[in-house]
Design a binder for these strands. Structure first.
Lengths: 166, 166
DNA sequence: ATGACTGCAAATGTTTTGCAGGTTT
DNA sequence: AAACCTGCAAAACATTTGCAGTCAT
């Protein structure tokens, strides 16, 4: 057993890596801001921090709630404007997970992937299959289309929700 | 060349088939209505007719426009209520083609399929690939998920839009 | 000082709902 | 007659935009 204040070297590596990545992302955002003549504000810093800290697929409203917990005064419009900025800076990708809401996931350091979404708990994980990708290309070609992109969402029950079903 | 009033036997067959299918669909709708204690009205008949006649992927607003062209007095709410009914009767399937609108396609007689959507003209065709379906199942299983469904949209340029691009 | 940014409220666009009156069974 | 259906307008949502005041550079 490892005591509270000790960490395995593996844990330390992961922390270091995460901190490094977050630093890079912040760099990218500040570069984007600067190169467009925009400005870094308290609100933008806060929203960026909170978005980067939270993995997963946040809706604007969920992000708004998280931000409001830290600063009551931030408005919804600022959240939406910030989401657009993060998208333009290639830090965020807007996705549709079939629940009618727009959702945003981290883009930096995440290669193309599709989603496997649990209908029980709503959790979505990233998946990828090169064979499927190749077949999609082939399928489009068969119909004379030039493929430029796709969206694939798989719906099912995750292991823990499958247990509960019984 | 075939004159205006003559039709090849193949054309006649297709007409007969289409008329038959439409009749079956209307039957299904009326059964659904009757078995739920609902009522058949002029508006519902009109909307059903127009929806069934129009292949493709209609948005509520597009359907509303088509209906209004035949009867100015029909309201938007009736369109929405009718779309829900047709969905419940398994005559329509609500799909998301990535343009932010809800769209409805015919369900009766259409087996499961995915969509290949042209980014030039917006046209969407139905596609299917059994190999992809099998790999999706395999991919979900690999992550411990029980697959219950999926949504796959391929985006590209259709043959005629590819020409225009040059 | 300039021009960008903010929160607010109003506007948008889509879909749903409450209601008074009309229609189907 | 009873219950359902209709169109309308208002309400709900999610998102965007205009504006007057504030803040970063």
């Amino acid at each position: 057993m490892i005591s509270k204040n000790e960490k395995s070297s593996k844990e330390k590596d992961m922390e270091t890596e995460a901190a490094l990545k977050k630093h890079e992302e912040r760099q990218i955002f500040e570069n984007h801001i600067a190169s467009h003549g925009f400005r870094m504000t308290r609100q933008r810093g806060l929203i960026l921090d909170i978005f980067l800290k939270k993995e997963g697929h946040l809706s604007p409203e969920e992000l708004y709630d998280l931000v409001k917990a830290k600063d009551q005064t931030v408005g919804r419009a600022t959240i939406y404007r910030m989401l657009r900025l993060m998208k333009e800076a290639d830090l965020a990708r807007q996705v549709n997970l079939g629940d009618g809401l727009s959702r945003y996931e981290h883009k930096y350091g995440h290669a193309h992937h599709d989603h496997l979404i649990c209908l029980g708990c709503g959790k979505a994980i990233e998946v990828f299959d090169a064979e499927i990708e190749a077949l999609q290309e082939k399928l489009a070609k068969k119909h004379g289309y030039a493929l430029t992109g796709h969206q694939m969402d798989l719906f099912g029950l995750c292991p823990s929700c499958r247990e509960k079903e019984e």
